[in-house]
Simulated scan of single mutants.
Amino acid sequence: MPHAIRVHNYGGPEEMRWESVEVPAPGPGEVTLRHKAVGLNYIDVYHRTGLYPQPSLPFTLGTEGAGEVTAVGEGVNGLSVGDRVAYAGPIGSYSEERSIPADRVVKLPAEIDFQTAAAMMLQGMTVRYLLRKTYEVGPETVMLFHAAAGGVGLIACQWASALGATIIGTVGSAEKGALARAHGCTHVINYREEDFVERVREITGGALCDVVYDSVGKDTYPASLDCLKPRGLWVSFGNASGKVPPVDIGMLAAKGSLFLTRPSLAAYIATRAELEETATDLFNMVTTGKVKININQTYPLSEAAQAHRDLEARKTTGSTIFLVD
């Protein structure tokens, strides 16, 4: 019987259990997958702790995976047993096998292996909507990207660099700063040693940024707003340090008629056409070498709890994946 990481009670990594599970045959519009690799993302922590509550307990963690189709449900077109596929979105990827709606998976190009796919789908499609849809980044763009050496950050630095943008990235160590620079970050700020608002002012000669991408949350608010030029956009897309406190909307006016958005990947790949467009753009960036996926940590899926501890302790860089036997 296949196994999965299940959460019976919200809490710390100790609440994650490696258990045997039954995988039902795929229903209408579904396929069954045998995972080869599974991605680790910070949203998994939010699900585990209950910051993002689930409809019921227990549940299987994980929102990203890659593997082979082993069964096809009624009414599914375009997918067959043996197809190599990947996805990001439907929760339940911390499993050896699962059934999933067929319209949420995409076929993998031959050039992309399972491990790379599992490391890139959620983070890479997130970067795609951030840089191409939430704010259209181009050669004139000056942007601040918090956590530039993380999984999303390293992909974003490469992608934004390919678009010609000026990228200011914040990091927590000299080593992470070197990593961000090596992946296209124009200017690096070590937030443990420098005031990032003052450094942004210095770097930009007082002109500030067009857009700030912020997945950190509580620790970078409201300082992120002070890095924006008038009518600039603050993109708050994560809470790694905790939830952003309630925002005084008047502050946006006082600081220069600023814009604020709180986007999610689900809203940008809601339709099949949007999913295919987003995934195709990501695949093209990777297969042409403009974006390289850095898998810097791997764990057996059964040791997912340790991976969560390392992620929350900020011991990881780039992408982390689980290997499925």
Rank of each mutant, 00 (worst) to 15 (best):
A149R: 07
L260Y: 10
A182P: 05
Y213K: 08
T70V: 15
S56M: 08
T134N: 08
D195R: 12
Y135N: 06
A180W: 01
G318K: 01
Y10F: 08
N239E: 14
L179F: 05
I269T: 12
Q158V: 00
T317L: 04
T60H: 02
E276Y: 09
A37E: 07
D113G: 14
K229T: 08
C227Y: 14
S215R: 00
K176I: 05
A88S: 13
T70P: 12
T116A: 14
D113M: 07
V38G: 06
Y213S: 12
I167P: 06
G232A: 08
N9Y: 01
S56A: 12
T126S: 09
D325N: 15
Y94P: 00
K133V: 12
I112S: 13
G250H: 12
G205R: 14
R181T: 10
F145S: 10
D310M: 05
S173T: 07
L233M: 09
Y268V: 00
T141M: 09
R48S: 01
G238F: 06
L57C: 04
S93T: 03
E68R: 15
T320C: 02
N190L: 04
V105G: 09
T317Q: 03
T320E: 01
A178K: 07
E175S: 02
G318N: 02
L301Y: 00
G75L: 13
E276F: 06
V142L: 15
W234P: 03
Y221S: 12
R314D: 10
E140M: 07
P26S: 09
G89L: 01
K133M: 09
E15G: 01
A267M: 04
V69K: 09
L311D: 00
T186H: 05
I295V: 15
P26Y: 00
T278I: 04
L122T: 05
G62T: 11
N9S: 09
G27P: 04
Y299W: 14
S56V: 06
